[in-house]
Design a binder for these strands. Structure first.
Lengths: 112, 112
DNA sequence: TAATTACATTGCAATATTGCGATGAAAAGA
DNA sequence: TCTTTTCATCGCAATATTGCAATGTAATTA
């Protein structure tokens, strides 16, 4: 009924799914890539850069922030967002773990 | 209006988002992990394993299959699903590319 | 042929997501 | 103080997702 049954799954599975959900929109991928490229960590020039309305960008930024992938700091009138490198290492670890599981499976399988 | 504006983004950004969406549900993570664990690549014992209804599992399997992450082959009455290792390498490449971009950014940044 | 088994599909209800205009809030400058 | 700038939040409409019961389909078995 439109609601995920999280209680059926492990904490790791739910965590992975939650992070994947943050990646599951091209605008949020684009935001992360833009933050990585402009090393100055600048703010809502994203509105011009992406071509979405300001309210929409703000909402995507909030989602990324809630997951902890980025963080923001007040910079005069505007706000600087940047990638949260601590969280990022955790995320990479989770995904690499999943990748490893599946790679091992592929090597030792000949059923397909 | 509930519809993603894919035309604003690059093919790679859209592709990454699409794959991430496949990961964005714990049941689909669990299915992939189960397929990796049971190297025999067996079928819809998943219904017992996960505790979701048969129709629900079938739908998740279809989503994974549409993206190309798994493939199925008829095995008598039942159907064997297993991980599609060719596609899987592409996926890993895409994610690693994103991870690299963001890692490089974190190292050379001191703004946050 | 009839029944069974194993999935797939359909159709529905509940909820979530996407996008935006309008409005709010807080800081900076006139 | 009034205005401007910059971002956040609210409220809405359009659409997507999640989950399941019911039903369909194709192969196997009795």
């Amino acid at each position: 009924m439109g609601i995920t049954k999280t209680n059926l799954f492990t904490a790791e599975q739910n965590e992975l799914a939650l992070i994947a959900k943050a990646f599951a929109h091209p605008a949020r991928i684009a935001i992360l890539q833009y933050l990585a490229k402009t090393k100055s960590c600048i703010n809502g020039t994203l509105v011009q850069e992406l071509g979405l309305a300001q309210a929409t960008i703000s909402q995507h930024l909030r989602e990324l922030k809630e997951i902890g992938l980025i963080k923001g700091s007040i910079e005069g009138v505007s706000i600087s967002y940047c990638i949260n490198s601590e969280k990022w290492e955790l995320v990479q670890g989770l995904f690499n773990g999943l990748f490893d599981q599946l790679n091992n499976s592929c090597e030792s399988n000949n059923c397909c």
